[in-house]
């Protein structure tokens, strides 16, 4: 009786282990492809990426250095903040001059039709981040005396998104001693709200 149950469990587990081994590689590849696609959106064209760990927003996050012809063209930071419905992870692409090249959403739990609009690539909210210069724009939503246009009726999501970008910029400033003056100016720009 319990023999049948145990036997069933063993057979099923064995078959699953086999299936797991078969699909492990495609799964890993699918996840990597998704990330690569996102990185391609947020930084300029590149040949290869180098992954590293940085501290972003107080937690250890991934950062991808994009390199083309031996030169660094940008850094993509995974920046996580607390949104309206849960975790919000934004991939922030920053070029060596300290400007935001573009952003993309990796993980979001926001309300469909409201905060989830942050995933719409052609929306006003998203396009305002392209080429944003933190030395010129104040990184806060308009309601908080900043320069960022929030999504209608989704102030909390917009604030979380803005904070994610801000954290990425701080992480960039903290890690790039070679970009010296540029990084200094950006940090001052953020602090001079």
């Amino acid at each position: 009786m319990t023999l049948v149950l145990t036997l069933t469990c063993l057979v099923c587990s064995a078959l699953l282990a086999f299936a797991h081994a078969l699909t492990e590689e495609p799964i890993r590849k699918a996840a990597a492809d998704k990330l690569d696609r996102a990185i391609a959106v947020v930084v300029p064209a590149f040949d290869s990426t180098e992954a590293m760990k940085v501290e972003c927003g107080g937690t250890e996050s991934n950062c991808y250095k994009a390199v083309k012809d031996g030169e660094t063209v940008g850094y993509a930071f995974e920046s996580t903040t607390s949104g309206f419905g849960g975790m919000l992870t934004v991939l922030v692409g920053i070029t060596p001059d300290g400007k935001v090249y573009n952003t993309d959403v990796l993980v979001n739990n926001e309300t469909p039709g409201l905060g989830a609009k942050c995933t719409e690539k052609n929306s006003l909210f998203r396009t305002q981040w392209e080429g944003l210069d933190p030395a010129v724009k104040i990184l806060a939503v308009k309601q908080d005396n900043g320069d960022i246009d929030a999504i209608t009726a989704s102030t909390i999501t917009s604030r979380a998104y803005t904070l994610a970008v801000s954290n990425a910029l701080s992480a960039f400033a903290a890690m790039a001693p070679e970009t010296g003056e540029q990084a200094q100016n950006n940090e001052e720009g953020i602090e001079n709200e």
């Binding site: 927003g57 903040t81 607390s82 849960g86």
Partner: peptide, 10 residues
């Protein structure tokens, strides 16, 4: 499987 926020970081 999920990370939670509960008013703080995920």
């Amino acid at each position: 499987t999920k990370q939670f926020t509960f008013g703080q970081e995920a």
